[in-house]
Design a protein around this nucleic acid. Sequence first.
DNA 1: ACATTGACCTACA
DNA 2: TTGTAGGCCAATG
Length: 106
Amino acid sequence: MKTKKNDFFDRVLEIVAQIPYGKVTTYGAIAEVCGVKSAARTVGWALNRASESGLPCHRVVNRFGALSGKVHFGSPTLMRDLLESEGIEFDDDDCVDMKKYFWEPS
DNA sequence: ACATTGACCTACA
DNA sequence: TTGTAGGCCAATG
């Protein structure tokens, strides 16, 4: 019974996979929905695997709406390009308008 | 097997 | 008010 072990990890992937088009979410939000808001770091790790799982990890940003993991996409401009391609606009600091594109996971 | 890092966030002093 | 410290899960050296 290999149950309950990757629960957290797995749950994060599920949520990220449910992010709608043209929307973005934050690590803290996912961690909070997972049950442990303090595990925001683990969410980032999950995303690392998510990129290999085919999940839209580029729609996940940090609390400031900045693309913290853009470097992990292979190209620092790839993540922003993808979000812009979805209709998402960026701020002067390369931050996404959270109050407009913030999607709350369920 | 142990210790450290890793795309973070929240809380307290 | 700003700054520092802690915490969570998993993977890697």
